[in-house]
Nucleic acid binder design. Structure first.
Lengths: 342, 342
DNA sequence: TCAAAAGTGTTATCCTTACACCCATGT
DNA sequence: ACATGGGTGTAAGGATAACACTTTTGA
C-alpha cells in the first residue's frame, strides 16, 4: 500500500489533510421536510478567495479537531450545540468523501479536505434559531422528489432531457429508466442520490457547471440555473443532502425513526403527514392507520388532541415495546407511488 | 465550529492526522462466507512498538495518499490491486471512525488516525492469494451468527452472561432482548454490529480486555479468550467486520448483491447456499426457488450443470432487466430464523 | 348545514408458508 | 436400489389495496 505521506518543507506549513464535518439536519414542520442551512456570508467575503456573497446556502459544517474531539460524532454534537444551542437527538453517519477538488480551499493552495457527512433528526423547535442559519424546504433543492401532489410536472422535462442525453448508449438509457421508474418498477422514493448523480452527470444540475467552471472563476450568477431543476447549494452540499434524504427514506422502511421527528404525543394524521413529507408520497389514510396500529408502533394515550380542524383525534405515543416484538419495525410497505389520493 | 487546527513546531514533524483504509473483502466458497485477512507479522516485529507475532489477523489496510489518490474508493482499489493482484468488483463504503485510541500508532506518539472502512465482494478465485494473506471463515469471529445448523449452542451461554450483566438495568435488559431476539421478534440476522457491540460492552469479547489493558502492555495470550466467543482480530477490525457482515445481510434484502459473489452462471442451489452462508440462516428450498424465479432475478441458460451430485441442474444467470422492473429486487422475505430444514 | 377530519367495515387479490410428492442422474 | 439433488402442485392463512360508509366536532 502507499507509504507514509512525504514530509514537506518545514516553514509556515499547512497540514496536508484536514477533516471537516457536514451535517444534514432534518425536521418536518407544517407538512414539509426542512433542512438547516447556513449562509456562506458568515465565512467572510474573501473566504477561499471567492466572493461568498454569491454563494448559495450551505449545510452547517465544522472542522474536526484531532486535539480535542474524542470521536467524530461527539465533534458533530459539539459543533451543532455551539452553533444553535440545541442538542441533537438521533444522529447517523452518512458518507465520507475525499474527492480531489471537492473543496475550494484546496484550489486556493490549501490542504486536501476530507469530509464526513452526518444525518441528524430534530424537532424543529428544539434547535433555537441561530444567526445566519435557517430552515429550508428540502424539495426546493429536489423538486422532482415530491410526488405528494401527483407526478411532478418537471419530471416530463427531465425525462426528455435525460433520454436525449442517453441517446445511443444502452447503459445510460438503462440507468435513466431505473432511476426515474420508467420501466415497470415505478418510482422508488429511496433512490434520491442515484437520481441526483444522474442529473449531475447529464449536466442538468447547476453545480455541475459551477464545478467545471471553477478554474475560470466564472461568476455564479451567470450559470445556467433557473431553479427549475432545483436551487443550488454551496460546494457539494446538495449531493450530501441527497444522500441524507435517500437514507432517511430507506431507513423509514425498517426502523421507527419517524418518531424522532414528532413530539412525544401526536395524532395519527400528524404521523401520516410526517411520513408523507419524508417519502414524498401520499399514503392511503385508512390503510396507513391500520398498518401502524397492527404493527404495534403506537399506543393510544387517553387524551384527545384539541386543534385538528375537525373531530378531535386521539393522541398516540411511540410504543417502545415494538422493538422487542418485531424484526423490522417500520413503514415497510410505503415503497412506491400511489395513484389515488385520500 | 472549531477553528483551524493549530500549527505546531516545525521540525522533524509528523502529520497530525492520517487517513487509513480498512477493507472487508468477502467471498463465499464451499458454502462458507470468508473474509480476506493479512497477518500482522508483515508489519515488522517492532511496528507500533508491539511484538506483532502475538497479534491476531487483521483486515487488509492501506494509507490514503492525499498527493496521489483522487478519491477514497480509487485508493481502496489501488491498494487491493497492489496487494493481491486482483481487481475488486462491488465496493461500498462502510463507516468512518476517528475514535481516540483506536489505533496503536497514536499511543506510540504518532498522529491521530482516521479510518475509513470499506466492504468489497469478490469471487474468491478472482483474488490470487498474496503473501501473508488468507481467506478466513467469517463465523470463526462470530460463532453466534451462524444459525444454519439450528440455534448455536453458544447462544445459551451468551444469554445467561448477558442477562447477568444486565441485572437490575431495564435498559440493558431491553437491549439484550432486542439484539438476541429473546422477545417475540425472534432472531434478526441484520443486527450483527449491535450484537457485537453489546458483547463488547459486557466484556465478553477479548478485544475489550486488550483495549483496556493496552497501557499495561499486557501480552495477548494471557487474555481471557478461549475462542468460544469468537476468535480475536487485531485492533478494532472485528468490529469493522461485524459492520460489513451486517451491511451485506441488510443489503441482500433489497438489492441483488448476491450475484457479485457467484460466477456468471450457477445453479439455484448454489445461489441458495450463498444466501444461506451470508444470512446464517436456512431457507426453504422450494419456496426459495419460486421466489427467486417469480421475482425475475434469474433466467435460465439452456445449459445444465455437470457436478451436482444428483440430477443435473439447470444453469441460471442474473437477469439484469429485473432492475428496471422491480423496486427492491432482493431476497426481502429471508429475514428471520426458520424452524424447518429442507 | 357543511366542511374537515376521525374512524369502521368489507372485499378481491396477492404473497408467504408449509406440506406432499414425483423426476433424473451417478454410484 | 438408493442417495442426492432438481423440480411441480396445492391449499391455508395473512397482508395489501382499494372501496364505500358512518361519526364527531367547529364554523
Amino acid at each position: 500500500m502507499s507509504g507514509q505521506s512525504g514530509v514537506g518543507p518545514s516553514e509556515p506549513r499547512k497540514p496536508e489533510l484536514e477533516v471537516g464535518l457536514n451535517a444534514v439536519i432534518l425536521a418536518v414542520t407544517a407538512h414539509q421536510p426542512r433542512v438547516l442551512t447556513v449562509g456562506t456570508q458568515e465565512l467572510g467575503e474573501d473566504f477561499f478567495g471567492m466572493d461568498t456573497w454569491h454563494l448559495p446556502p450551505a449545510l452547517p459544517f465544522g472542522s474536526f479537531d484531532e486535539k480535542n474531539d474524542r470521536t467524530l460524532e461527539l465533534c458533530m454534537r459539539r459543533s451543532v450545540l455551539e452553533k444553535t444551542g440545541g442538542e441533537l437527538g438521533y444522529v447517523e453517519q452518512l458518507y465520507t468523501f475525499a474527492d480531489q477538488g471537492r473543496d475550494p480551499r484546496e484550489r486556493a493552495g490549501g490542504s486536501r479536505v476530507l469530509s464526513v457527512g452526518y444525518l441528524a433528526l430534530a424537532r424543529e423547535r428544539d434547535l433555537s434559531q441561530a444567526e445566519n442559519s435557517s430552515w429550508q424546504h428540502c424539495y426546493r433543492y429536489f423538486p422532482w422528489e415530491d410526488w405528494r401532489g401527483g407526478r411532478p410536472r418537471i419530471i416530463g422535462d427531465i425525462e426528455s432531457a435525460l433520454l436525449d442525453w442517453s441517446h445511443g448508449s444502452a447503459e445510460r438509457r438503462e440507468r435513466v429508466e431505473i432511476c426515474f421508474g420508467l420501466g415497470n418498477a415505478g418510482w422508488d422514493a429511496y433512490q434520491v442520490l442515484e437520481r441526483y448523480e444522474l442529473l449531475y452527470e447529464a449536466g442538468l444540475i447547476s453545480e455541475y457547471w459551477t464545478d467545471r467552471g471553477r478554474d475560470d472563476d466564472m461568476p455564479a450568477d451567470e450559470l445556467p440555473s433557473d431553479g427549475a431543476l432545483g436551487e443550488a447549494m454551496a460546494f457539494d452540499h446538495r449531493r450530501i443532502l441527497a444522500t441524507g434524504l435517500g437514507r432517511i427514506r430507506g431507513k423509514l422502511r425498517y426502523r421507527p425513526v419517524v418518531f424522532e421527528l414528532l413530539p412525544p404525543t401526536f395524532t395519527l394524521l400528524e404521523l401520516q403527514r410526517v411520513v408523507e413529507a419524508l417519502t414524498g408520497l401520499r399514503v392511503h389514510k385508512q390503510n396507513f392507520r391500520r398498518q401502524v396500529e397492527r404493527a404495534g408502533l403506537v399506543e393510544g394515550t387517553g387524551q384527545r388532541s384539541g386543534k385538528t380542524g375537525g373531530r378531535p383525534a386521539e393522541l398516540f405515543r411511540f410504543r417502545r415495546a415494538v422493538l422487542r416484538e418485531r424484526r423490522a419495525p417500520g413503514m415497510a410497505t410505503l415503497q412506491g407511488a400511489r395513484r389515488s389520493g385520500n
